[in-house]
Amino acid sequence: MNDQTTGQSLGQAELTDRYHYQVIGRAIEIIDAAPGPLTLEEIAADIGLSPAHFQRVFSRWAGVSPKRYQQYLTLDHARKLLQSRHSTLETAHLTGLSGVGRLHDLFLRWEAMSPGDYARGGAGLRIRTGWFESPFGDLLAMGTDRGICGLGLAAQIGREATEADLRQRWPKAEFAPDARALAPWVDAALTQSGEARMHLIGGPFQIKVWEALLNVPDGHVTTYSDIAAAIGHPSAVRAVGTAVGRNPISWLIPCHRALRKSGAMGGYHWGMPVKRALLAWESARWEA
């Protein structure tokens, strides 16, 4: 592989390969389109695998059976998350709940760009880029000398659109392919070991929203209105939703954990199947 376009995570034993996520992605699409629960045999037949092989591939990736994972993908499960693992953000730190979150998990460090630097559209910044494999398909990483500034998931929209999406956020920056330089931070992000540094490049309001998201623990969820209250703007729910959607560092800044008060998923910049997969994957590991 060309090091300038594709990076390899050092923790491959802990990650699925691209083939496994393709199988899981197709399974999720089939489950989403079905009017009710499907049997193992029905899903396997649609994918073109034997039930036994599909069960092995799926369980290796998700850590649970297809039947159990199917339950995690439903609206009902999202509502149960709000009832049982709803982090209000205002009390999470006081109760120690955020102690299990990534922000306090020893490996994550971040700093924000100044408002003036952000207003210049990335002028003077040199941003390295590289493609990596993740449990959720192709992952585009971008980073400055200070840390990761962009992570995009291309499973739904493709590599070209993902790269264009991240590049347009800092139109005056200089971009250079250099997956090797980013690999240690990306590996830490994927395996939650080592040190993952982030360089948040956004407006002051956006950064407040992203900082609040960093306090949502693994396996838990919050709501857009809770985020608005936590940053001192309780009436700015719509603006919070926009800032959540503009989060440039998917996964590490867990915007997929933000739901509507009703339990509905809301939107997700990199595609709703990816959001459902992320939440279900985290639920499986948290309950294990």
Rank of each mutant, 00 (worst) to 15 (best):
G130E: 07
Y72N: 03
A44H: 03
Y268L: 07
R18L: 09
H199Q: 06
A288P: 00
L166Y: 03
H233Y: 10
T6M: 07
G263Y: 09
Q83M: 10
S84A: 03
I24M: 12
Q4M: 10
L97Y: 07
L213M: 10
R167P: 14
K261R: 14
P273V: 12
G203H: 12
A78G: 10
V237T: 15
Y72P: 00
T5L: 09
I227R: 10
F175V: 07
S98N: 05
D226A: 14
A280H: 10
Y19V: 03
F132E: 08
A164H: 10
A33D: 11
H256Y: 11
Q70K: 03
K67F: 01
R238I: 13
S59W: 06
Q192P: 00
A34Q: 04
I253F: 05
S250V: 14
W110H: 12
H20G: 01
A92F: 07
V240Q: 04
G152T: 02
G219L: 03
L139Y: 13
A176I: 14
G271C: 01
A164F: 09
L125I: 11
E282T: 01
A258M: 14
A62G: 01
R26G: 00
R246G: 11
E287R: 15
L278A: 02
H20L: 01
V221H: 09
I47Q: 10
I127F: 11
A123K: 08
H53T: 08
Y69C: 02
K172T: 04
L213R: 05
G245N: 08
I253A: 03
S84M: 04
I30Y: 15
P115K: 07
P248K: 05
A154T: 13
Y69M: 04
L82E: 10
N247Q: 05
P217V: 04
M113E: 05
N215K: 13
P184M: 13
A44K: 02
G267M: 10
L108R: 05
K80T: 13
A112C: 10
T222E: 09
L108E: 05
I30D: 06
R169D: 05
W185S: 15
A123T: 05
F132K: 07
E133P: 12
W185G: 13
S50L: 06
R167E: 07
T129Y: 15
T95R: 09
L151K: 04
Q71Y: 01
G219A: 05
L214C: 01
L106N: 03
L73K: 13
Y268I: 09
I28L: 12
F58W: 06
P171I: 12
A119K: 12
I249G: 12
H86A: 00
G63F: 07
Q12H: 09
A27I: 02
I231V: 07
D165E: 06
A119P: 02
I148A: 12
R146G: 02
V186C: 09
R128K: 11
A164P: 10
I148K: 15
C255V: 05
A27R: 06
Y118E: 15
D3L: 07
W286C: 04
M265A: 14
G48Y: 08
R56P: 00
E41Y: 15
P204E: 11
D32T: 04
G96V: 00
